[in-house]
Write a protein that binds this DNA or RNA. Structure first.
Length: 154
DNA sequence: GCCAACGTTGGC
DNA sequence: GCCAACGTTGGC
């Protein structure tokens, strides 16, 4: 069992948008960054825990959790010329991009803002703090437990 | 809206 | 294969 942090712009796709999906489950697609792609394809497994993070908004914060409902499969958007995620260099035999399905799990009573995460010495090693601009990143079991505690979810 | 960090592209 | 130019992410 692994833990991850997924970033999403709430204007595009919020935690609540995920909750509104049938079965509280939605496709996490449109990943077009190789580092994030490699995590998705090679390391994210069904059942893994996901910290849902809202980025590029007024208060960037971890707002809740989800779980991986289906492990990686080729992102259909890359084959669709109508999609903004279309990639002319990808084909069905040799897909370049992958997606997963995730299921809404919980909304934090108290979202944990990035500023608070940065101030907490126990979280200074988080990829979120050390490296910007990575939309899928690993989280340790310790970080996961602490975030849930700070969010009032455990 | 600015801009720093960083990844990708493409000329040579 | 180097590296400059360019594009994107995302905090502020």
């Amino acid at each position: 069992m692994n833990y991850w942090l997924f970033k999403s712009e709430p204007d595009e796709y919020s935690l609540n948008d995920l909750k509104q999906q049938p079965g509280h489950t939605g496709r996490w697609d449109g990943i077009r960054n190789y580092q994030a792609r490699n995590f998705l394809r090679d390391a994210v497994n069904e059942g893994d825990g996901v910290l849902f993070y809202h980025s590029s908004c007024k208060v960037p914060a971890v707002v809740g959790t989800a779980r991986i409902a289906r492990s990686a499969y080729p992102d259909p958007a890359q084959f669709n010329p109508e999609s903004k995620y279309f990639d002319p260099k990808a084909n069905a035999e040799n897909p370049r991009w992958f997606c997963v399905d995730i299921q809404w799990q919980s909304e934090f009573i108290k979202p944990v803002p990035l500023t608070e995460i940065k101030q907490n010495p126990a979280l200074e090693e988080m990829v979120l703090v050390k490296q910007g601009r990575l939309s899928i990143q690993p989280v340790t079991a310790k970080e996961w437990a602490l975030l849930l505690k700070l969010g009032g979810a455990s």
